[in-house]
Every structure is written in C-alpha cells, then in structure tokens.
C-alpha cells in the first residue's frame, strides 16, 4: 500500500502545489486589495476550489493513467484493485481538501474578523472542502472506465454543471427534494424550509445529517468504482 501511495504522491503532488498556490494567491490578493467585499471574495475562492479541484484530481488519477497505458501494468501486479483505488482516492482527497484549507488559513490571517467572523470563514472553507471531496468521488466513479483524460474532463464538467443546476439553478417545484438532499453541494447550500430557495451555510452546524447522507453516497460510489476499475474492456 505504501508503494502505491508513494507512486500517487509523485504523480499528483504538483497538482497539490498548483491548486494551493492558485487558491492561496487569489485569496491573499483579493482580500488584501479589497476589490470586492470579504464575503464575496471568500465565496469566490471557495467556488473556484469546488469546481477546479475535483475535476483536476479525478481525471488525472485513473483516466489519465488508462490513456497512457500504465494502468494495465498496475492492474497486472499482485495487488487488489481496491487497494490501487484506495491509494488514488487518498491522493484525490488530499488534492481536494488541502488547497481549500490552506486558502482558508491564508484568508483568516489576511482578513479574519475584519468584515466576516473567523468562524464563518473557516466554516465555509471546511464545508467547501467536503463538497469538493464528495464531487471528486462522484467524478471518480463516473469517469473510471473512460479511456483518456479529455473525455473524463468533459464528463466531470458535465456532472458539475448538473449538480450546480440541480442545487442552485433549477428552482422549479418539479425538482424533487431528494435531488437537493443528495447533492454534493448540500455541504455548502441549505434549502430554506417551505421555499425553493437556497442559502449559503456560514456555520459548521448543522453538519451531521448531511455528513451521514454524503458519507453513505460516497461509500456506495466508491464501492461501485472499485468494481469497475479492473473491468473487462480488453480484447485480443
């Protein structure tokens, strides 16, 4: 397992650096220059992280390796496909969470308590990291059999657009509440009771209910992905 984690770290760590650099620099420059108010700036950085990081991490882990041809060599080793996927997932979780949390730390140092409470800032970055992880697992599961990074990216962006529309864009009564409830973006948005309207959540509570639902969904998706990683797509 350590060998697999070492490999994934070497292959993906540049993305961790890139994502962290982009989000931290954006937060620092935006909050320091005060082009817009702090709340809007924090929301913008979180939004960018939630759309950028899952796509970047999920498409680079399996479809890119399948496209290069080295996934076949990896799967032919005496190791369970589940372990290969576990190492990749661990790296994907780091890629989604670390840049957002680092940007949160930078934001708190730069503008914590100025216009926004430090706790509210921390809560939004934390919830955004959880939303990014959930989206990452969705994308990982759906793109796992795709033959290259380009097609995987298109599908991942499509999925992202779907959840954004389902969560925030489609405010029609015909959208069943279940869609809202299972959305990965439920970590950052809350449906106002009795109204088809969404509000950004600025505190850590309530988190328990969403966490349980999302953890169950993520577990099912991951199990499904692990079954499909070593699928029989080859031919003689």
């Amino acid at each position: 397992m350590l060998s697999l984690i070492w490999k994934e770290w070497h292959e993906q760590s540049w993305k961790l650096g890139f994502g962290s650099l982009v989000l931290c620099a954006l937060a620092l420059i935006g909050l320091h220059s005060r082009i817009i108010d702090d709340e809007s700036m924090v929301m913008f950085v979180c939004f960018l992280g939630v759309i950028l990081l899952p796509v970047l991490s999920s498409t680079g882990l399996v479809p890119a390796e399948r496209g290069e041809g080295s996934l076949e060599s990896l799967l032919a080793l005496p190791v369970k496909p589940g372990r290969i996927l576990a190492a990749k997932t661990a790296m994907g979780v780091l890629l989604c969470a670390v840049p957002l949390l680092l940007a949160g730390v930078v934001s708190i140092f730069a503008a914590g308590g100025r216009e926004m409470a430090t706790g509210a800032m921390f809560a939004l970055y934390g919830r955004s990291a959880l939303a990014a992880i959930s989206l990452f697992v969705w994308m990982l599961a759906l793109t796992i059999r795709l033959p290259n990074e380009t097609r995987a990216s298109l599908l991942a962006i499509g999925l992202l657009i779907f959840w954004m529309l389902a969560t925030e864009g489609l405010r029609f009564p015909s959208v069943p509440p279940l869609v809202f409830d299972i959305s990965p973006l439920a970590f950052v948005y809350r449906r106002e009771t009795g109204r088809q309207e969404w509000r950004i959540i600025w505190s850590l509570s309530p988190l328990g209910g969403v966490l349980i639902v999302q953890a169950a969904i993520v577990a099912i998706l991951w199990w499904w992905a692990s079954k499909r990683l070593a699928g029989g797509e080859g031919e003689s």
Binding site: S3, K7, H10, G69, S70, S73, A76, P78, V79
Partner: peptide
Amino acid sequence: AEDQTMFGWMRMGQLLSFVAPF
C-alpha cells in the same frame, strides 16, 4: 505484455523499488 507501458516518470531504480514489495 504486448507493448507494455511502464510509469515513465520513474527512474529504473525507483521502478524496481516500487514493484519489489508486491
């Protein structure tokens, strides 16, 4: 395998260290 593709970024020594534990 036919036309086997390895992990291009690894050095030969690293590749051996990666595969050996399995």
